[in-house]
């Protein structure tokens, strides 16, 4: 570029700058259109912060005595997460096996594996819960199944990636020494996929604790049932107690899961 002809300095050349402005204008227009589509009354928006504030004021202080009462559903929430994750892992192992390029028997099974992984992941836990409540009725069983089905895609995908990264040389070495097929698994394969496995299991469990807090809204067990009830009966201080408790178990499980993952790296 010659600087003789230009008297002003430009950050970008004209076309890129025009495109950039166009993109911003389009984004703003789409947002504005979306807002119109929602057809929300302006007064409601203005009142919203005050309403939220009012609600919080009505909630405060939390009902500490209620804390003891919600201990069982809190434990149930964690149990749903644990069992749901465990079940998901059991179901995921064969799916991961057919969904990993180096272990899948043929192209059809590979496609099936990929389909199951994508399919289960695209359906939210609450939708799975709706189904299982129809099938098995309300309660934690439906919750466990919902959490498990929701997790299959995530868990199989990551385990499949772990299997795909196996170094065949380590497996070969154990066979070359006359190791039995079981030795091959215990020494050649397990150490290699262990970090991925533990990582996936604890990470997913952590996510599932969060998921298990909401499936109660449709009757699938856990603390969500109590939150729903407390709201329906306008027991605001109980609602705040539950929200704080949820915050607590989610943060604790996050810390635990991060600690476990670090230990097994």
């Amino acid at each position: 570029m010659s600087y003789e002809g230009s008297t002003t300095w430009r950050k970008h050349d004209g076309r890129a700058r025009a495109l950039r402005y166009l993109a911003i204008v389009v984004a703003i227009a789409i947002t504005a259109l979306s807002w119109r589509a929602l057809d929300i009354q302006y007064t409601f928006v203005v009142d919203a912060p005050r309403n939220l504030g009012d609600l919080l004021l009505r909630m405060y202080p939390p009902n500490l005595a209620y804390g003891a009462e919600i201990l069982p559903p809190l434990v149930e929430t964690i149990n749903i997460a644990i069992l749901g994750t465990g079940l998901a892992i059991l179901i995921s192992l064969p799916i991961a096996y057919i969904g990993a390029e180096n272990t899948t028997p043929n192209a059809v099974t590979y496609a099936l594996g990929k389909f199951l992984i994508v399919g289960t992941r695209s359906v939210n836990v609450i939708i799975w819960a709706l189904f299982f409540v129809v099938i098995f009725g309300t309660g934690a069983l439906s919750g466990v199944l919902a959490v498990a089905f929701r997790s299959i895609g995530f868990v199989s995908k990551l385990i499949a990636e772990g299997i795909e990264e196996i170094d065949a040389g380590q497996v070969e070495a154990i066979r070359a020494m006359g190791g039995s097929p079981l030795d091959v698994v215990v020494y050649g394969i397990v150490p290699q996929i262990k970090p991925a496995f533990v990582g996936v299991a604890t990470y997913r469990w952590d996510i599932n604790v969060r998921e298990a807090t909401v499936i109660g809204f449709v009757g699938a067990g856990g603390i969500g049932v109590y939150l729903d009830t407390a709201i329906n009966f306008f027991q605001w201080s109980n609602v705040l107690t539950i929200l704080i408790a949820i915050l607590g178990i989610v943060i604790v499980s996050e810390v635990v899961s991060a600690y476990l993952r670090k230990k097994v790296s």
Binding site: I163, I166, A168, G169, V171, P181, V184, G188
Partner: peptide
Amino acid sequence: QPQSQNESASSGISDAS
């Protein structure tokens, strides 16, 4: 190429690969 093979089914790697 390092050979990536494994005959036994339990070891998890198919003959195809």
